[in-house]
Structures are given as C-alpha cells and as structure tokens.
Design a protein around this nucleic acid. Structure first.
Length: 412
RNA sequence: GGAGAGGUGACCGAGUGGUUGAAGGUGCUCGCCUGCUAAGCGAGUGAGUGGUUUAUCCCGCUCCGGGAGUUCGAAUCUCCCCCUCUCCGCCA
C-alpha cells in the first residue's frame, strides 16, 4: 500500500510513477479528492465528539450531585445522532479510499530503467556457456518421458490439465534440488522455516495478492482461505502486526513450499511441460530489513539466488525489469534471473528478486524502532531461490547427451 | 466436533457504566547515590489519526481480540465472530 502522504505532498510524482505502470491519473486525482474530503468531514465529526465528551463528563458530575439532567440529556442525544451520521459518511469515504489504495501497485524506484515492453529489459549480466550443442537438443518434455522421469499423462489423470507427476529419478532429482537449495540458503544465513500452504484472506492482503488477484488463487470451498501462490505469502506474514526488535534485523528466512496458481489468463499456453503448471515447488528467500539497508540487500539476494545456479552449472542471465515489465504488484524494483533452455534456444524466467520497500510492510503492519526510537515500517524483499520445476527442466536440457540420456551423476 | 476458562500497553497484571489512556509491578530512558557489580532513590516512558508546526512543542479524536447494539456516557452491559488455554471425542 502506498503512503497517503505521497499523494498529498507529491501528487505529480505519484501520477507520473503510476503512469509508468499504466495507471490512469484520474485514480490519483480521486484519491486526493477523497482524502481531502475525509479530512474535512473528520474535523467536523471530531469537534462534535469533543462536545459530547465534554458534556458527558458534566452530566456525570451533575448526576452525582443529584441535579436534573433530563434536559441536557435530550440535547446530547441529538448530538450523538449527528455524530453517528458523520461517522457513517467518514467511513464510506474511508472505504472507497482504502479500496483504491489497496488496488494500486507499488511505485517503480528511480533506478528502474524506462521501457516500452519486455524487449527493453536491460541485461545486467550473463553467466555460463550457451553455445550450440553438437546435436539437436531435446526438450525437457521429451527427455522427461524418454528417461521415465516425468509422467505428464498421469498427472493430468489425477488432477487435470497442467498438473504433473514425477517418477523415479525425476522425483528424486526434484527432492535433491530442493534440498540443495535449502542447504545453500542456510549457508547464506537464512533460517529455514516449514510453513502452512494455506493462508487466510488477511494474510494474502498483507503480502499484496489480495484483493486484486483473487482470480489467480485457489480458494477453499466454504472457507475464507486460499492455497498459497508462493512461499512469499507465509514468509512475509510471519511478522505481520509485529514490532520487530531492532536487534533482530535483518531477518533472513527461507522455506520450500508448493505454490498453487490458477493461471487464469494463461489457458492454452504451454499446455505441456514443467514451465507453466498449477502446482509447483519453490524455495523462497525473504528478508526484512531497515529501510536504509534494503537496496544493498536486494543485490545480495540476487547473488543468493544466482549461487545455486552456479553450483548446478546452469547458464543464466539477469535482467532488470524495465518500467513496462515491472508487473510484480508489490515491487519497487525487480531482477529476473532467466536460465537457458537449449531446446527453445532462449532464456526462461526461474527467479524474481524484488525489493518491495515499505509497500508490504504497510499492508501487513510490520514495524521496528529506528535510532530515534520512532516506529517505522521495515522494508521487505523476496526472491525465488529458485523454482524447482523450472530449474529441473533447464538442468535436464543442459545436461543431455546425444543419445537422450542425462548426465546427472553429481546430483543424483 | 462437544464442554469450560480466558483475550487489557514491550511484558505481567488490576479494573464497581461517568476526572481510566487506563492502578500496581517488570522492563526501558534520564538524573542522583554507592570505590567496581548488585541494590537504592527521583522523574519519565503506548499507538493510530487530524489540526498547527514540521527537529520539536501544543490541541483534538480514536483505540482495552474484531464487529454490531443499549446509553447523554462502555474496558466495564447485550449479541455475533475470531483466537488462546484446559478437558472430552476424532485422527496421520
């Protein structure tokens, strides 16, 4: 959630920044209008309340002395009524304002490069050798079936389209990869957590998936809870509503979770394979930091995520998402890590590392005390470290031999 | 799922419908005292939001799990919901 003070103090900056994320400036105008409106009304109502408090105290005194209070009571009843009218008005304005604010994405940081489309994402770095193989590479789908590691049909039989079943070495490979990733994160200072895969509405609100993206989530029948679309949801919310002792910062936590996504807008896209599925496993990295440390933390987290790919010797590149492609709702700046897929002759996203600054902390109400003992929102960062299915798919493709077998001895 | 108990400030813990934003204690901060440590003495110490100012100070309003209600007035009374604990049931 954006700070309403930004709208008051720097409306043009907000308009411009949101414009980069294709938000019409009329929304900003409306927010400012509502805020102004609300404050005016608030002052009226509060002065009535002041009157009420004042008089009520007097009535108490009079009653104690045994004086007649019936007349003043009648007067106060009227005041009380107009207070509750005013309250209703303030509340309805507040609600509209809140709904608007909850639907607005974070502002791109100044350092986010301008771009018209995803074509304009600058490449920050590349790593590894992506020279052509001496034979036509098979896709991970073909390799998975050929080596009896991935059973697409049976996954579909059990759960439907875009669900996958792993078998034998496939299942083992996924498990070992998860394990390597968690151990790696542990060595880099992250505390491993085992978290629920179901989250309440308020939890999803805190990390920013709700209210805007409910259609992307699996909702539990008869309950106001959802399957988590990413481990970020439980990890960020571990500290929701808390004042974190400053000595505990920065907090670095990790967990492997299943992630459930309805992929509502992606019907027909990549119907087979491990790239786009309704359920996948991912090791998530999260940090909570002091505001002044979050930008350094972002660079460190990028390295945290990269390190596992280096260990697995998977060629990758890092891109900085430009203003047009910064689609992560909560993010102020995002790096994507993309791994090489020989069969497609291109890089595919495997990790997204973002600094959300105070956007989530404001929603989830996560604070700490700064050097002057003032309460402030922490900054939150999240990154995949990394998606297991996509990692496995890329690994298989990059480790294939001419006969379609795989060179995975160092991992299995 | 059933029965009971309970949810008050960073923490523990009082609280009869009206000077209770909330006693008392712990912790914390500052000062004094003591040859160090410990102890002692004194003062201070919640958050959100609005006005004014903007390093502050000051003045309002709101907040005692969440929501609705009764009342001139609710931490205190009524209803609904959530959560925690204990016992029973069920279960990997």
């Amino acid at each position: 959630m954006l700070d309403i003070k930004l709208f008051r103090d720097q409306p043009d900056m907000v308009k411009e920044a949101l414009n980069k994320r294709s938000i019409d400036s009329s929304v900003v105008k409306r927010v400012i209008e509502l805020d102004l409106n609300r404050r005016e009304l608030l002052q009226e109502v509060e002065s009535l309340k002041h009157q009420k408090n004042d008089q009520s105290a007097k009535i108490g005194e009079m009653a104690r002395k045994g004086e007649d209070i019936s007349k003043i009571r009648e007067t106060m009843r009227v005041v009380s009524d107009s207070i509750s009218d005013g309250n209703d008005k303030v509340r309805s304005i507040q609600e509209e304002l809140n709904d608007l604010l909850l639907d607005l994405p974070n502002l791109p940081d100044k350092s986010v490069p301008y771009g018209e489309s995803e074509e304009d994402n600058p490449v920050k770095k590349t790593w590894g050798d992506v020279s052509k193989m001496e034979f036509p590479p098979l896709s991970h789908i073909e390799l998975g079936e050929k080596n009896n590691m991935i059973d697409f049909d049976r996954g579909v039989k059990i759960a439907g389209n875009k669900f996958v079943m792993l078998r034998g070495k496939g299942a083992i490979l996924a498990r070992k990869l998860q394990n390597m990733m968690l151990e790696n994160a542990g060595k880099r200072g992250y505390t491993e957590l085992a978290v629920p895969f179901i989250a309440k509405r308020s939890t999803l609100l805190g990390s920013g998936q709700l209210p805007k993206f409910e259609d992307d989530l699996y909702k539990l029948d008869g309950e106001d809870s959802f399957l988590i679309p990413t481990g970020e949801v439980p990890l960020i919310n571990t500290r929701a509503g808390e004042i974190i002792p400053t000595s505990e910062l920065p907090i670095k936590i990790t967990a492997v979770t299943s992630c459930f996504r309805r992929e509502a807008g992606a019907a027909g896209k990549e119907t087979r394979g491990l790239i786009r599925v309704h359920q996948f496993e991912k090791v998530e990295l999260v940090r909570l930091t002091k505001p002044e440390e979050s930008w350094d933390a972002l660079e460190e987290m990028l390295e945290d995520a990269e390190s596992i790919l280096k260990k697995l010797k998977i060629p990758y590149r890092v891109i900085t998402l430009c203003t047009a492609d910064l689609t992560a709702f909560t993010s102020s700046k995002t790096y994507d890590i993309e791994v090489w897929f020989p069969s497609m002759n291109k890089y595919v996203e495997i990790s997204s590392v973002s600094n959300c600054i105070d956007f989530q902390a404001r929603r989830a109400n996560i604070k700490y005390r700064d050097d002057n003992k003032k309460l402030k929102f922490v900054h939150t960062l999240n990154g995949s470290g990394v998606a297991v299915g996509r990692c496995m798919a890329s690994l298989m493709e990059n480790r294939q031999r001419a006969d379609g077998s795989l060179d995975l001895d160092d991992i299995l």
